[in-house]
Design a protein around this nucleic acid. Structure first.
Length: 708
DNA sequence: TTAGGGTTAG
């Protein structure tokens, strides 16, 4: 049989590296580290012998017969007569009655109807009275209820009940209990339980490994996988599918390739689940070509496989290719699902493709996914980014189920369009409704405060983060606060905040201070921040330009000339900026100074006409354009790409349509003033999405508060 | 004789 080319590659890789090889990622990664020491401790034998040390930590084992030197077991089950005597209840025949059967059946039925809370309430009857004969199916139903509600309290109640009633779970129920701990996020308890299990099978291993992957503890997942690989001959496709996700989580392609090799060796390289996990892993680790090879070789291309490869292309910014794959998928007769919609809406958001997003929205409703939380959250995000925050709010209000990400998307939507008060209002409503905010929520709220200049509220919220919400402050939060202080002109306070940060200041923090220094003309502090930035990111052109301008403005021409020389020596030059706009379902891209667009003459004429009109209103082009002496400078100054895109939009769209421009760089100060004036004289709504934020120009104002 | 696996949104 002919072996496909890709399989050759994998086999070759397998020969060169394998899990047992001393050069493998795992050995390399874990040797000489704490993990290696842990690994030696956690060999099968040690685990067994360490059980004594661990036994006091888990309630069941506390009751086990370890002290008697026996094989670890759970608390011996008392006889029914003993139980009846202890509880002071009637004899066994009267206790195992119809009522027992009725309650258990009722619990199971409630769980079947997803009425988890009711099932746990019904369980209270069993807890209060005790002595009932509860079977595995009822325990299983209660476990499903606890998992469904992610109820830690429920999980603990269930375990306590089993211990109090001397129930000795079999392997099946033991695995289910392990799963309950994992899914309720009780990983410490789950780990102890796993260590103490009298017997473990493949399900136990897969369950605990998936728990570590889900909780983001990828190294622990790898360590357990190695243990399993070495001591348990039951690595199934499920195991590989799970542990490959750990590689994707760590964004490390090398262990991912090794796992791929191991999967091939184990004969499960083309399993559907393994293939999907591999596509996802390769694309998240930057190996899009490998991802596509795996996809091509999938014997049966499932919807998950298609979604994974489309998401992979989208992740790497190949939006057009991703859309083409989506059309291929539809043509191949695969039925799209809510995952597909979420991915497609995100691609539309990237491309600013309003038409396609609207089609996707309509299709979403038509296909019966109108209530899906993820797809609707993607829509909230899309409409917010498009500048239609009220439409986003409308979708949000109609969502029957909202999660943290939905709230965060709406808060960011209001914040990014200069509606800081409404962002705070939503944030406060979210807290009132019992939703627990995370670091992203605070990023959205602080950014909203910064953009809208809500200094006091922003500062108050920043302080409440650690005090009331126990959220660790990250560099991004500090950056927001530096911007907020900078806007108020409190430059010394902003600098003090950088110094006070409990970590090394990041380039973004210095850049935020530098921006504030430029706006408020504090040359001294600005120079200091620029030098810091220059030292941290020596290859970033932007920083050279900033430093050059600082020297130029302070009259230090010799230093300025040195910077230009360094720039030329390093071969760094300004790449022409690119902006694009979608008109009649087609994206139109414009490069700064580029004259290749078929309608460029008409567009340039329109730009000139607009510039003339705004100059009559008193607009004077910024003379001190802060750019180095590089090629294209003249063209860049005259025809900035965003001006060309706007002019094209004005010529080719109806007056009531808002212009949606996307660009990969930051809007410069001069362009910002120009767009604001164009929006005013043409009475058009213009949304510009640049590298840092959204600018919503309407009625001669911009949502960013004229700060860039 | 059950159970454990892959893709999405901020």
């Amino acid at each position: 049989m002919e072996v496909p080319l890709y399989q050759n590659y994998v086999h070759d890789h397998l020969r060169r590296t394998s899990l047992s090889s001393s050069t493998s990622y795992f050995s390399h990664h874990f040797s000489g580290s704490e993990l290696f020491r842990d690994r030696s401790l956690l060999s099968a034998y040690s685990l067994w012998s360490n059980r004594r040390k661990l036994r006091n930590s888990f309630c069941w084992v506390k009751c086990s017969s370890l002290e008697q030197g026996l094989r670890p077991r759970l608390k011996p089950k008392p006889s029914k007569v003993d139980r009846d005597v202890r509880k002071g209840t009637p004899s066994k025949e009267t206790r195992i009655t119809k009522s027992s059967v009725r309650i258990c059946c009722h619990i199971e039925k409630l769980v079947l109807c997803n009425k988890f809370r009711d099932a746990l309430e019904m369980f209270e009857i069993l807890e209060l009275e005790g002595g009932y004969d509860v079977g595995n199916s009822t325990f299983d139903a209660l476990i499903i209820a606890c998992i469904g509600l992610k109820s830690i309290r429920g999980a603990k109640r269930l375990c306590a009940y089993m211990i109090d009633n001397g129930i000795e779970p079999d392997q099946y129920i033991m695995n289910r209990i392990l799963l309950m701990h994992v899914r309720c996020g009780m990983m410490i308890d789950a780990s102890k339980l796993f260590d103490e299990m009298p017997e473990r099978n493949a399900v136990s291993w897969n369950t605990i490994i998936s728990g570590y992957v889900d909780s983001g503890n990828y190294k622990e997942a790898f360590r357990l996988f190695i243990m399993m690989w070495e001591e348990y001959p039951g690595c199934s496709p499920r195991t590989f599918a799970t542990v490959i996700r750990a590689s994707a989580g760590l964004e490390l392609i090398f262990p991912g390739k090794q796992l791929h090799s191991c999967a091939v060796k184990a004969g499960v390289g083309q399993d559907i689940f393994v293939s999907c996990a591999l596509i996802d892993m390769y694309s998240k680790c930057g190996g899009l070509e490998d991802a596509h090879c795996v996809f091509d070789e999938m014997p049966d291309k499932t919807i998950v496989g298609w979604n994974s490869i489309i998401a992979g292309y989208a992740l790497h910014g190949h939006s057009e290719e991703a859309l083409n794959l989506y059309f291929q998928m539809r043509d191949s007769g695969v039925k799209i699902d809510h995952f597909t919609f979420s991915i497609i809406i995100r691609i539309c958001s990237r491309l600013a493709s309003v038409t396609r997003a609207k089609q996707a929205h309509a299709s979403l409703v038509r296909n019966g996914f109108g209530l899906d939380v993820v797809a609707n959250t993607a829509l909230v995000d899309f409409y917010s980014k498009w500048g239609k925050v009220d439409d986003a709010r409308h979708i949000f209000d109609r969502m029957s189920c909202k999660n943290l990400i939905s709230w965060n998307a709406l808060i960011a939507g209001y914040g990014n369009h200069g509606r800081g008060e409404e962002a705070i209002e939503i944030f406060e409503r979210m807290l009132r409704e019992g939703m627990v905010p995370n670091h992203v929520t605070f990023l959205a709220v602080l950014s909203a405060c910064s953009i809208s200049g809500l200094f006091e509220r922003g500062w108050e919220i920043f302080q409440s983060m650690t005090r009331d919400h126990k959220i660790k402050l990250r560099a991004m939060h500090y950056t927001c606060m530096i911007e907020l202080l900078g806007r108020e002109g409190l430059l010394d306070e902003a600098y003090a905040l950088i110094r006070k940060a409990p970590f090394q200041p990041t380039a973004n923090m210095w850049a935020a201070l530098l921006r504030a220094c430029r706006v408020h003309e504090n040359l001294e502090l600005g120079k200091y921040a620029a030098e810091k930035l220059y030292g941290m990111e020596p290859e970033k052109l932007r920083n050279y330009i900033v430093l050059l301008n600082i020297y130029k403005s302070s009259g230090k021409l010799k230093e300025a000339a040195d910077v230009v020389r360094t720039l030329k020596r390093k071969g760094l030059s300004m790449l022409p900026a690119c902006s694009w706009i979608e008109v009649k379902h087609q994206p139109h891209a414009f490069l700064s100074g580029d004259k290749h667009h078929p309608e460029i003459e008409k567009v340039v004429e329109k730009v000139d006409e607009l510039m003339l009109e705004i100059s009559k209103l008193g607009y004077v082009p910024e003379q001190n354009i802060l750019l180095p002496d590089v090629d294209h400078e003249e063209k860049i100054q005259i025809y900035h790409s965003e001006k060309l895109a706007i002019a094209y939009g004005l010529i080719n769209t109806l007056k009531q349509t808002p212009l949606q421009i996307v660009q990969g760089h930051r809007v410069c100060g001069d362009c910002h003033s120009v767009i604001k004036l164009i929006a005013m004289i043409t009475k058009r709504e213009i949304v510009v999405r640049d590298a840092s934020r959204f600018h919503h120009f309407r009625d001669g104002r911009c949502s960013c508060g004229d700060y860039w």
